[in-house]
Amino acid sequence: MAAAARVADDEGGQHPALAFLIRAWPWLFLIGLCVFFESWSRASYGVTFLGNTFNLQSIALFAAFPLLLGLGQTFVIIAGGIDLSVGFVMGLAAVVMARVMQYTTPVDPALALALGILAAIAIAMVPGWINGTLISRLRVPPFIGTLGMFGVARGAGFLIAGGTTVPVNNPWLFAMGNERLFGVPIPVAITLLVVVAMHWTLAQSKFGQYTYAIGGNRIAAVRSGINVRRHTLLLYMISAGCAGIAGMIYTARFSAGAAQAGEPILLDSIAAVVIGGASLFGGSGTILGTLIGALIIAVIQFGLVFINVEPFWQFVAVGIVIIVSVLIDQSKGRLTGERKDAE
């Protein structure tokens, strides 16, 4: 009996090399991209691509926004949902922060920054809570619910901004967006802190474990006594909170809030999550994967501008990377000999 079971085990085992390739492909791809751009830059222009601080800082700044939106999105996608509203929640947070700081800066610039940060995070929680409630209590499909919030947050952002951008003249805010700590731009440092917190939560805490369980088998999660409704609500609030932090950094970098701040980032952020190995069907994904995904997108976009490839090729390149990632995700089972049931 035992012997029979062992044979079955071996049949179901993964080819170690193939399994490694599939798990490590985003890393390998990122390294490949860097090598490609480095050699191209040296050959064509005689300059280094990665070997200087300015480029590294620029790539990190480039990656920061899609990464921040992607961090919360990773949780939501692992649990089998999607949050389409994050782009405009980011814009709403940026606008509200700028408005609050416009009024309070004349009183005390440092206090104004503190209030602005609080306002950005607090306002982001509102759409997050509404998304979560719609999806967990009222059973609205995530795609529809967050698409509705996409519109609401967008409208609210433009209304509060009066249709334009909201400038703030505050030295503390400017410093937060543009200064460096030990050579690391402050927006990048903040993003890294959020990455560490999110990674810990997803990989080490019960909360993270439940997120995977809900995405893997919702019914099993419910039967195991996990409060799936409350958890789902929290997931969408985390996602909105990350968008709020992104909005806050946006306002700091540009000394102004804009309602459309995050609009172009939404798709990049979802792409980062998917490239990082999360399945849109839920159940898998990691924060480190999303980090790599965001870096891949940033390196491609920065690199193609750097080596002066015609702009429209950038869409094509990012599109191909997304399709390839999804194909790899889809074929994981087949390639690794994953099994359904014995016989």
Binding site: N217, A220, G283
Partner: peptide, 12 residues
Amino acid sequence: DLALADNLDVGA
């Protein structure tokens, strides 16, 4: 349907 989360390991 076993009530297992297929994406988690045995201990989990």
